[in-house]
Amino acid sequence: MKPISILAGAFAALSLSFSAASADTRAIYTISNISVDEEAQNTRQAEAEAFATAKVEGLQRLVRKITLPEDRDGIGNSFYSYATANELASAVDVDNEKRSSTVYRADLSVVFNPVRVRSRLQQLGVPYVDRQSPPSLIVPVSEDSSVLEDWREAWPRADRGALNPYVTGLSFYKATDNWSAVSSEVRASGASDAVFAELSGAEGSYRVRLTRVSGGDSMVVGMTGAVATIEDAMLAATEYLDTVWKRQAIVRSSERTTSSATVRYSNLQTWAKLRAALSSSALVSDFQVDAISRDGALVTFRYAGDDTRLAGELRQRGVILTREPSGWVMESALGG
């Protein structure tokens, strides 16, 4: 592994941007890299048709992004009409534009209006998630050294618009590395945990095994289906992480359980992070602090789902939830 000391400066800007990643609504509602190629009687008409195509495709991709397959099955094709897409879109950003007298080509990004999209999905009774998980450090690894460099290069430096936003690691790791190996880079990047993305297979049948590492332990997230190319494998891994987050964060019932816990920490900075993680959890409501000292606090809250689901969602936010004889105890997965 390369010396970790060089990483702090390289990650400084990314760390700042990821500090507010979970609140970046515009990033979630922006669908980028929509390639259009339209031909019409004149360039103005071709451009209008290209924008219309992009808005419809963008709406389809946005709905896939923030909902689960079983929930969007009942939406119906009429929802993806140009009239609906145009109503819900706020802006179109243009890149790599090329035009002639009859042809318009470009890469477009469509920004959708969060309030209008939420309203339409609520009217249809479709559950959705537009709140991001805490960011992860993606660690691309592979036992096949011949594909490792291509696998690392397939990942963008960061993706702030994903539901599970991430920054890609700069150092080289092995699939067998543990928390002690990656913790310094996780902290330098502003992430809350590391996700090892282990590529296996060969051209035409690549798979990615995803393992989440934080606070000294690890948990297998799952494995993607087989895809044809390394680029497809990266996209499949990103989508898999987003889907796992959606299944954790979507709340289908109004039933809530009231509970309390002891929060342990060694400094006020860690307490601030723990409090922010708890109060911003999609499963937690009515969070309040009942007592506080320099190394601990007593909190009460209500939560949706069962204990296992709550523990999993909080762990992704960097909080370890354990049951002791005295009750629930919460600590930072990063220490402190």
Rank of each mutant, 00 (worst) to 15 (best):
S254Y: 03
N267S: 12
T224P: 08
R294C: 00
D107Q: 14
Y206V: 12
A50D: 12
S22F: 01
N113L: 08
S260V: 02
F79E: 04
L59A: 11
T322Y: 00
V251C: 01
I292E: 11
R72T: 09
A228K: 14
N33Q: 15
K2S: 11
V221I: 14
L124D: 03
A188F: 14
S35N: 14
K246Q: 06
R26S: 13
E331F: 02
E203A: 14
D95E: 14
K174I: 02
A297C: 04
S136P: 01
E313D: 07
T176D: 15
R264Y: 06
S260T: 15
E331D: 07
F196G: 12
S293T: 13
G327Q: 05
T322A: 05
E38P: 07
R72H: 04
S136K: 07
R323H: 03
E47R: 15
V139R: 04
S78T: 10
S183R: 15
T30I: 07
R160T: 05
Y265A: 02
S192K: 14
S218Q: 15
S109E: 10
A249L: 02
A85E: 03
A154F: 06
Q123T: 10
G58Y: 13
N86A: 13
R294L: 11
R315C: 02
D107G: 06
S17L: 10
P127K: 03
L210D: 12
F51R: 15
Q123D: 10
T176I: 11
S326P: 04
L68R: 10
L62H: 10
Q132Y: 00
A261Q: 05
P135C: 04
L163H: 03
W155T: 08
A83Y: 05
K55I: 14
I250S: 01
A46P: 03
L278F: 06
D159T: 03
E47M: 15
S100M: 06
A237K: 05
S101P: 00
Q123Y: 05
R131E: 00
I66L: 01
L199K: 14
E38H: 12
L16G: 10
S281C: 00
G222V: 09
L310G: 02
Y128I: 02
N178C: 05
E70N: 12
S280E: 08
V117L: 07
V299R: 01
I34Q: 09
P140V: 05
S200A: 15
S218D: 13
L163P: 08
R256Y: 03
V36P: 08
G305D: 00
P127R: 02
F301T: 01
S78N: 13
S293V: 07
I230H: 09
E255Q: 11
D286N: 12
V129T: 03
G216S: 11
S260Q: 14
V284N: 01
T258W: 04
L210M: 11
D107L: 10
M1H: 13
L59S: 08
A158K: 07
A85N: 02
Q123A: 11
R160E: 11
I250D: 00
Y80G: 05
R187F: 12
